[in-house]
Design a protein around this nucleic acid. Structure first.
Lengths: 193, 193
DNA sequence: CGTAAAAACTAACGGCTGCTAGTCAACCAG
DNA sequence: CTGGTTGACTAGCAGCCGTTAGTTTTTACG
């Protein structure tokens, strides 16, 4: 019980940190800023977390772990390559909508990780990209996809999904489903008629 | 002549600042860091620039001015809507390759602009996006493009081009022309066969 | 060559940073 | 009721920040 309360406060700090890091950047967010947002003095937060760096670590690796485990799951299905890639695009859009602040931090502020954690994060991201790229490559080999450069396709897809987090709000006149459908159409069928 | 030398030093500071801001962020770059990179004490740079904020302003508005003037030029040509959009994509890729650091700063660090400059920058960007979106809208109305949501198409294109700056290096086994051709194919014709 | 302007330097300021130490109240198990 | 753990507080340290002031060196021109 006591443990649960502790976890709640800790999670609150992590959530608010993600929002602030997204809005003002890791360097632009002070522990005093974060304390004000959480409703606590800066020093008090050290009862729940060990350092500012640790907050960034937890956020970044939580996101990368999610992507990696989901990729592994999708790889094991029996779907076509097109459908596997669709599933990955779906995953990216869904995470952007559901946990946009954390994803945004993992995308933009990972470079402020401590040297060793930075290396680990870059390696994790590289592994994810390798797995994603392999799906594209196999899809091309199987004749399901256009014979474009694999890296170009990979990064274009990964980037094309990022803006969602900056733009999408419920009540913009477009639902999450419509949004996803539009992006999927664009990436798979293109803009030209 | 004396003026020219002054401009050179000033430009050197701006160029190195763009590189450092890109690598470590605006907040993560100190004037002492920048001085070391330029080969000068931090204080000495104030003979050439007025403030750290001013450096960011110059970089950001230089980029946005370039985009806006090029858009105006493209709007006035007699090409088809598809070709106008292609020209804009070409512009984005070319600027990313030629002046990647500055474009990166304008994309990522604009939020650290001073309040009034921030407002002006956001307005400029909004105007650019409006002009770009209008071309897409007209292209759809003319039957040249697929009837997707205009905003989705706009932001997908704008984002899909951003990664170039992080990834492209001459000698990666792909030329700028091939890169552009691949991206153009993906965005206009899609990944699926 | 002399002189004035341009551009570099050193030193330092007030303010903010992440974080620690020490204290004290609230709570909960025995 | 009591003892101890938890989690909040205030105060403050050492260090970096952007920037200014004042001084000295370098440069360019008549």
């Amino acid at each position: 019980m006591a443990k649960k309360v502790k976890n709640n406060k800790r999670q609150l700090i992590l959530d608010e940190a993600a929002k602030l890091f997204k809005a003002k950047g890791f360097g632009g967010t002070s522990m005093r800023d974060l304390g004000a947002q959480v409703g606590m003095e800066a020093a008090s937060m050290y009862n729940h977390i060990n350092s500012k760096d640790e907050i960034l670590e937890i956020i970044c690796f939580h996101v990368s772990d999610t992507y990696i485990s989901q990729l592994a799951q999708i790889e094991q299905t029996q779907a076509s390559y097109v459908d596997k890639i669709k599933a990955l695009i779906h995953l990216h859009i869904r995470l952007m909508i559901e946990d946009g602040a954390a994803v945004s931090v993992a995308n933009n502020d990972w470079k402020y990780l401590t040297a060793d954690k930075l290396e680990a994060f870059k390696q994790a991201r590289k592994n994810y990209e390798k797995g994603f790229a392999a799906l594209i490559e196999q899809g091309i080999a199987a004749g399901e996809l256009q014979p474009v450069n694999t890296s170009v396709a990979l990064f274009t897809i990964l980037s094309a999904v990022r803006w969602v987090e900056l733009w999408y709000r419920p009540g913009r006149g477009i639902t999450a489903e419509e949004l996803e459908e539009n992006i999927m159409t664009l990436l798979l069928n293109g803009l030209a008629k």
